[in-house]
């Protein structure tokens, strides 16, 4: 073989090894993360019963009470409310962008949505704290503006870019043929969107909504700034409460590593990770199903 060929062969091998190393590194990091969090988090159960952790609302580490139910409930509640508001708005926005908007509007909106995704969450939190918190307090006449409603509102805005961009892609990938067939059969454009395009894009839209939920449940900074961080079960839309990430961020700074308290925070992080993981698995399942149907 000529020297040139040998060089090429070596370069090829080198490139392959670099790619392999990168992939291995990623895998090792994610596994190490899960193992570490699991190891720290599960140690909680040597001092706290799983039943207490998951179902008690008494979070009082000074007295050895580690009930995290209020935080789990708070997380799920704000996520649900955020998706209830943000989901439909996002999907409707996507329909507009994919099917109705003139090209030049699309050309402005597409980068705008991407930019929107890049806004740091502390900016949302700061605006929430200075604008939304006082507005909620005054408009609804409640003593404090911190709470579920404010946090859900901020989150519903924060998940919009995720929902919009993924739904738009899903809608754009619906074959033009289906639409044309529907219109040819005499359906109005609205009927076509409602009965043909949206159902055809359903798996993609569901994926968009689940990823939006994953974004909402893990959001820390913006929620922490507006929710009030009260370790108490929310009993109304206006009651300050706490979510898993907000409680972790408020308490971790002063909690010694390795104490039961610190471990309980790790366990909360693990619960959060598992919830996100389940959402990702659901998304994978949906896209697998979509592949079969297509």
């Amino acid at each position: 073989m000529k020297k040139y060929d040998l060089d090429r062969l070596r370069n090829e091998k080198l490139a392959k090894n670099i790619l392999l190393c990168s992939a291995a590194f990623l895998t090792v990091v994610i596994i190490a993360l899960i193992v570490f969090m699991g190891q720290q988090g599960l140690q909680t159960f040597t001092d706290v019963s799983p039943f207490e952790f998951f179902f008690s609302t008494k979070w009082n580490p000074d007295n050895g009470q580690y009930g995290a139910f209020s935080f789990i409930f708070g997380s799920l509640l704000v996520t649900f409310l955020a998706i209830l508001v943000g989901g439909p708005i996002g999907v409707m926005g996507a329909v507009f962008m994919a099917k109705l908007a003139p090209k030049w509007v699309c050309e402005i909106m597409k980068p705008a949505v991407n930019l929107y995704m890049a806004i740091p969450s502390v900016v949302y939190g700061f605006i929430g704290l200075t604008v939304v918190v006082p507005a909620v307090r005054e408009y609804f006449g409640v003593p404090v503006g911190f709470g579920i409603l404010t946090a859900s509102f901020i989150l519903s805005i924060m998940i919009l870019p995720t929902v919009i961009s993924i739904s738009t892609d899903a809608l754009l990938s619906v074959p033009k043929m289906l639409e044309e067939g529907s219109v040819a059969l005499g359906a109005t454009y609205w009927q076509t969107i409602w009965h043909i395009v949206l159902p055809a894009a359903k798996p993609g839209i569901v994926t968009a909504i689940i990823l939006g939920m994953a974004r909402a449940i893990g959001e820390t900074m913006a929620v922490q700034m507006v929710i009030g961080n009260t370790p108490r079960l929310a009993d109304s839309l206006f009651s300050p409460t706490s979510t898993l990430p907000s409680e972790i961020v408020v308490e971790m700074g002063n909690t010694p590593f390795g104490s039961t308290w610190g471990n309980a925070l790790f366990l909360m992080a693990l619960v959060l990770l598992l919830i996100s993981l389940i959402m990702i698995l659901v998304v994978r399942k949906i896209s697998a199903k979509k592949a079969v149907e297509a």
Partner: peptide
């Protein structure tokens, strides 16, 4: 009481009190 708004620093407590009537 657990019925309180929790902030994670002195500065944040002060600004929350400054902006919340009756705090």
């Amino acid at each position: 009481t657990d019925a309180a708004v929790i902030q994670d620093s002195n500065g944040a407590v002060r600004s929350a009190i400054a902006t919340t009537p009756g705090a």
